[in-house]
Nucleic acid binder design. Structure first.
Lengths: 363, 363
DNA sequence: TTCGGCACTCGAATCGATTCGAGCGCATCG
DNA sequence: CGATGCGCTCGAATCGATTCGAGTGCCGAA
């Protein structure tokens, strides 16, 4: 079929419909929006005229200009779609936002922050400060956004950040007790008697390196969540070596763990703190592969509380974060801000879940 | 902080900036858009005035009305975010669309089609025929959308459907050889000598039942992809029993397979055709659990060609579908249609990948 | 008979920017 | 010296609907 089947370039407008129905544009508008008093006869006449002209209803663009609202909430992802959506936590959070934002059909404008050459495309690429959004959620806030945030603020568009570090702005944030929660998990290991503990960490920056964590990498690190969780683990095990995976994937956890576990048994860690459940699942796979029984010879603790698909029969010891609730909170914050209310930054706490992947170290 | 910090309700407009800079609105517009000839001095004066007034640049809503383009592409999901994004294929496709649509920052408006009570929300919920979109992609097209499609067409908004059945409309579709590909996989099993084959299927409709496939369920089935793949399997094994999982998850594959495999060895299928790789992974887990070695005692074949995270050491025999490429094709189709070109429905073919999960049946 | 009130309907202003053709000043060229 | 052209600006129209206050006509009540 033809993309745009217009020998005549002009699509009917509300005015045309009104003219055909023999009423004024304002009346036609009322007939469509349902607001205001319109006699049934008139309404029917307008709708009939619309049908005859094949009028598809008021143009959303014009409507959103007039109303000052587009009904769209922007969600900014740090990575490209493919990577962001491999993270169950992000998905759960997004789901929470979507649930709270629109009860019937939710509109979330997904903006990915991917560097790339500007293309002279047919579809104008939309940027954060360029999109017709009523509010914005930054998933993984970072000082990089300062400029966009300033623009949005000047425009009166509410901004909520989920996790991360907003820079020096007073952005409303949805935060989480990453450090305290991790510390809790580490203390659990310590109480069990573990001493040689290693950490499998998330990315420290946007480079996604699979490599040991060094002082320099920490100093250059930009991923607040990773840093906070590291700090929590080191609160309890100050000397625990850490190793970042190139992303929060089972396979990365496996690769890093192979590295960490392929040493003589006496030097081998008796417990591993993974910064995500997916990484933890990979650690368990690696242990299986090396013939190291979990939890007898190796305790594994995760973070997130997503039930990793296919991890059965393991019940991962982990810190359950309220991901969907965080998303809903972001959604509620946005609604409140759009209603002109003041909103405070919120801190969520994670809950320790003791599964069957941690135990006393074997002697 | 305050959501909207306006003692004065009026935000500066382009006109205000122009006035302050001592130029006309048209000139100010040119200064911002970069289009057209404006002297450096004037541009600087305008930008300076903008800074002084804390003007955040042209309002996207007004711009999109005037330009007739919003730069946003709507993507309609059949399920809520949480469920849709657990499917790696959907994510890959989305990524492909996003990649093709905008080189720099892509704007995809995610619309979920969730039935629910209308809420009198602050943020107006946006519907498919109500959102300021330049084009729409239906992921999982179905006759349910006929009305929305009609609206969009009347409005001149290009629509592309990915998989599924568009109803009687002549919607541009991105399709795939589900039946032929599945048949190919089934023939592979037949050539190996398998005779007792069972099928683990995707959902037949939006109810997501975990249950045996019956004649009646087939008749009522609405999921085109599932039906096509079933047909392909039955082309080769007309009597193969099938069982749907309640979603394309590893865990569902496991549960269904436990059902299928928990019979006396002589009646047990020697091969299982799973309609997705995730389901196949679950089948393998179930087999491991029951002590049935794969592929010696049970061959497993999947569909999709996503590498299931954490499935190592298995290399799943499967049909690799070009998911990201399908997304890119949808993106290209949209761009072409927006440029006024004609676009045809496209059919993609899957490629057979022989891994190490299929073998001759043991005697 | 006249007036208040009710139920609709209409006009006109407005939302905020973009765009196109016209105008104007200045410089170069013939 | 006048004409042509170039470079920059400006006015005015337009994008398509929403909204508010001001009618208009009709009916019932005083």
């Amino acid at each position: 079929m033809t993309a745009v089947d217009n020998p005549v370039e002009h699509r009917p407008t509300l005015a045309a419909v009104a003219a055909r129905a023999g009423v004024s544009a304002s009346t036609a508008s009322l007939a469509f929006s349902g607001t205001g008093p319109v006699s049934d006869a008139t309404r029917e006449r307008v709708l009939q005229a619309a049908r005859e002209l094949n009028y598809a209803g008021p143009d959303p663009r014009a409507r959103s200009l007039r109303r000052g609202r587009s009904g769209i909430v922007g969600v900014v992802l740090e990575e490209r779609v493919r990577d962001a959506f491999r993270d169950p936590i992000k998905i759960a959070t997004l789901d929470g936002i979507s649930e709270e934002i629109g009860s019937v059909e939710a509109g979330l404008l997904v903006l990915t922050e991917v560097a790339g050459e500007a293309g002279a495309d047919e579809v104008t690429p939309v940027t954060l400060s360029d999109a017709p959004i009523d509010a914005a959620v930054l998933m993984g806030c970072s000082p990089r956004f300062e400029e966009s945030i300033a623009t949005l603020r000047a425009r009166g568009v509410p901004v909520v950040g989920i996790e991360g570090d907003p820079g020096d702005d007073d952005v409303v944030m949805i935060l989480q007790d990453n450090r305290e929660a991790t510390r809790l998990g580490a203390e659990h290991l310590k109480e069990l008697g573990h001493e040689r503990v290693a950490i499998v960490a998330l990315s420290l920056d946007r480079e996604h390196l699979r490599a040991p964590v060094t002082r320099e990498r920490i100093a250059r690190g930009t991923a607040a969540t990773t840093l906070e969780r590291l700090a929590g683990a080191w609160d309890v095990f100050p000397d625990a070596p850490a190793y970042t995976g190139a992303g929060s994937y089972v396979e990365e956890g496996r690769l890093v763990a192979l590295e960490l576990l392929s040493v003589e048994a006496s030097a081998r860690p008796t417990a591993i703190i993974a910064q995500s459940d997916l990484l933890a699942a990979g650690v368990i796979r690696a242990a299986e592969e090396l013939g190291i029984p979990v939890p007898q010879q190796l305790s594994v603790i995760g973070f997130d509380g997503v039930k990793v698909d296919g991890l059965w029969p393991y019940d991962l010891t982990t810190l359950v974060q309220p991901a969907a609730e965080k998303g809903r909170a972001a959604g509620r914050a946005i609604k409140a801000m759009l209603a002109g209310e003041d909103v405070e930054t919120q801190l969520f706490t994670s809950e320790f879940h003791e599964g069957n992947t941690t135990a006393k170290p074997s002697l």
